[in-house]
Computed example of a mutant assay.
Amino acid sequence: MDIPKSKKLDIIIPAFRGHSQSFIMALEGISEEDALKRIEGRTNHIIWMVGNFLDMRYALGNILGLDEEFQYKDFFFQGKALDENMTYPSLKQLKDSFHTISPLVYQKLLEISDEELDKAFPMGMNIDFFPENVLNFIGMCIGREDYLCGQIGLMRRILGYEGMKYDFDENIKY
């Protein structure tokens, strides 16, 4: 396993890699058509969930110093509500973005120092038990990714796909 420069990320590194694997496995076999289906008009579709997952990855990259911009951020930035009148990017396009940004973010997570993690990062939460710093923002992004992977997994079952497999691919290093 890769060792991060900061011991504060010992739990984040495996979570990040685990989420990458879960993301890939949850989307396995999902058709482009099914990725746009909503349940009774009440749920977001998988494309929206995937786009939000990627919005988190790009946000992580930005706070870690990457200049990469999410090509589809106008659809998903900061959890932007689903708009049924928009033509969303394809699942393939979003998967390609995932494979572009994820290794870059992963490398930055390995390189960041304790001092950089402790830097203030205002989020506007104003909660006394939640210091608004880079480390906690990373934790929030990881939590959001976990939530979205769970939603995608649930949607795959609702849409009639078999449950997600946990066949981790050790060749994916991010």
Results as ranks from 00 to 15, higher is better:
Y174E: 11
H19W: 07
G41A: 01
I3H: 00
D146N: 14
S20Y: 04
Y72W: 13
S6V: 04
Q93E: 15
G163R: 15
E116Y: 08
N62F: 00
R17E: 14
N85C: 03
P89K: 10
I30D: 07
F129I: 13
D167Q: 11
D10A: 11
L9A: 00
G65F: 12
P4C: 08
I158S: 06
K108G: 11
N62W: 06
E115G: 02
I142T: 09
L54V: 09
Q107T: 07
H99C: 04
H99E: 03
F77A: 12
G79Q: 10
P103K: 05
I101G: 02
F53S: 05
K5P: 00
L91C: 05
L159E: 07
D114W: 11
L94S: 00
K119G: 13
E32L: 06
K165E: 08
R156V: 06
E111G: 02
L94Y: 04
L9H: 03
G29W: 07
K5V: 09
R156N: 10
F130Q: 08
I63A: 12
D169G: 02
R42T: 02
T43G: 14
D55Q: 00
D128W: 11
F137T: 02
E111M: 05
I13S: 09
N171Q: 13
L9G: 06
I12H: 05
K7Q: 15
L117Q: 10
D74N: 13
L64C: 06
D67V: 15
K92Y: 01
L60C: 05
N44G: 05
M25T: 02
I63V: 14
L110H: 12
F98W: 01
L82N: 14
M1S: 13
K73C: 04
M140C: 10
E32R: 02
L148W: 08
R57E: 07
E111K: 15
L66D: 00
F130I: 09
E115Y: 09
R42G: 02
S6E: 05
E84G: 02
K7I: 14
H45W: 04
R144Y: 10
I3K: 01
G61L: 12
I127S: 14
K5H: 07
P89Y: 00
P89A: 09
S97T: 02
Y72T: 01
L27P: 12
Y72C: 00
Q78V: 15
A15C: 03
S90T: 14
